[in-house]
Amino acid sequence: MEEIMNVIKNIFLTVLLSLFLISNSNADKIKIGTEGAYPPWNSKDASGKLIGFEVELAWTLCRYIGQQCEIVEQDWDGMIPALTSKKFDAIMAGMSITDERMKTINFSQGYADEVASLAVMKGSDLEGIDTPEAVNLNLGGSSVNKAMKTLTSALSGKTVCTQIGTIHQNFLESGDVGKINLKTYKTQDEVNLDLTNGRCDVALAAAVAFTDYAEKSGKEVVLVGPTFSGGAFGNGVGVGIRKDDTKLLKAFNKAIDKARKDGHISRIAIKWFGFDASM
């Protein structure tokens, strides 16, 4: 019996010690949270490494700030709470700057434009939908209203899929496109899977998320309808930072300025998106 007691004591000590060690390593690094499941913004390759536009940009920005960084994985639906509970210090996860989010956290200036689009499988009856090429919800006016009307009737009764907690979900729930059957997923990867499986009639996400998927999977995913910006879609993608962390906010703003001027953001954007999405 003594033996069992000793074993249990040892387990306790080891666990407590390891918790302590883990919690004290990397204390002075800037920790950046990303999702790792939203290619080409951020994803993971088969060697387990985080890759993508934001991962590469994060390293550049850290170099400019002049501090060591560590990139931390975090599920999308826990991203903002993880930031506020100090699991990491900054979010770079394709997160658009919106008023709703600004109530809880701060954002740096935008570093990239995220253009949203609907996508369907080839052969869908939505393919021929007649709308302008781009809709900016900030502008309003008759052409935007007409486009929204066309969309409302085209999407009526359709199963529309999108990732949970995104600007895309906000837009679809806003009532601007009428009554749809909305399905929300934990990751964009899952949205893509169910779009190709046929569980979704149509999906909404960043346009590049679909084109990247179509290219890599060889599936016939095609963009339809207009590209969306403004309104619920926010004002570009920025670095999310805690409200009280003004020093880090300034540092990131400065670093983004520098990376924009010397062309780094454009170069990295072209490498991952195929076009210059910097802003």
């Binding site: 639906d77 809880t104 907690g165």
Partner: peptide, 11 residues
Amino acid sequence: ARKVNVLTFKP
């Protein structure tokens, strides 16, 4: 509950 959480940030 998860939906309310992500839409309002009030877990």
